[in-house]
Amino acid sequence: MSGNVFTVGLIAAWYPSNIGVLLLNKYLLSNYGFRHPIFLTMSHMTACELLSYVAIAWLNIVPMQAIRSQTQFMKIAALSVIFCTSVVSDNISLRFLPVSFNQAVGVTTPFFTAVFAYFLTLRREAWLVYERRSPWSRAS
């Protein structure tokens, strides 16, 4: 049961922190006149790296894992570059878009991820992945 409470606590902490980062980024990039979205992204990524290391190495929240091969390293590096590009693009867009539109576009990510995954792997996801309404909502 304590594992469930911990998970719920993490999710509950994630929402306000995610909203806070988004609103702070919008304020810095649009209202405050900060003109360096890549530096802002670098600062966020550095903080995440340091806090993740503390959580793994000192607090032992999850075990430390070694990279086992060159292939695994290349996959991790590619994922890192793609993720960083995504965050930089998101930060740059905040200068020009309202937060509400930014979030509305972000909500479409699971759908487009499933569509692109189909074109790359030619494997179709379960129909619930493509449905517009939540799979937990009651059928009308």
Rank of each mutant, 00 (worst) to 15 (best):
A77Q: 03
S69T: 10
R95Q: 12
L59Q: 02
F73Y: 04
V62A: 14
I92S: 06
M74N: 12
I56P: 00
F96N: 14
L51E: 07
C48P: 01
L97W: 13
N60W: 00
S93R: 04
S69M: 12
V87P: 01
L79M: 14
S89W: 01
Q103R: 12
A66H: 03
F83E: 13
S100C: 09
L59E: 05
S86I: 10
L94K: 00
I82P: 06
A66R: 11
R68E: 14
A55D: 02
R95V: 03
F83C: 13
F83G: 12
A77V: 02
N60R: 03
I56E: 01
S80L: 08
I61Y: 02
T71S: 05
N102P: 00
C84G: 10
Q70V: 05
N102V: 12
S69P: 02
N60L: 00
F83A: 12
P63A: 00
N60I: 00
V54H: 07
Q70A: 14
Y53D: 02
Q70W: 15
K75P: 01
V88M: 01
M64I: 13
F73Q: 02
S100P: 03
V87K: 02
Q65V: 09
A47Q: 03
W58Y: 06
L79V: 05
R68W: 09
V62Y: 04
S69L: 02
V99H: 04
S69I: 02
S69F: 10
I76G: 05
S52A: 06
M45K: 00
L59D: 08
T46F: 09
T46A: 05
F101W: 14
C84T: 15
L50H: 04
T71G: 08
M64F: 08
T46C: 05
W58V: 06
I92L: 07
V81N: 14
T71W: 05
A66D: 14
M64Q: 10
Q70K: 09
L51P: 04
I56R: 03
A66K: 10
L94W: 02
S80D: 11
C48V: 08
N102K: 11
I92E: 04
A104S: 13
K75A: 05
S89I: 09
A47K: 07
S52Y: 11
F96H: 10
V99K: 09
T85R: 04
I76T: 08
Q103F: 07
V62P: 01
Y53R: 14
A57N: 11
T46H: 01
I56W: 01
F96A: 13
V81D: 10
W58A: 06
W58K: 14
A77K: 06
T46M: 03
F101L: 13
T46P: 01
Q72V: 03
S69K: 03
V54N: 08
L94E: 02
L51V: 07
N91L: 00
E49D: 14
A66Y: 06
T85W: 10
S52G: 11
A66S: 12
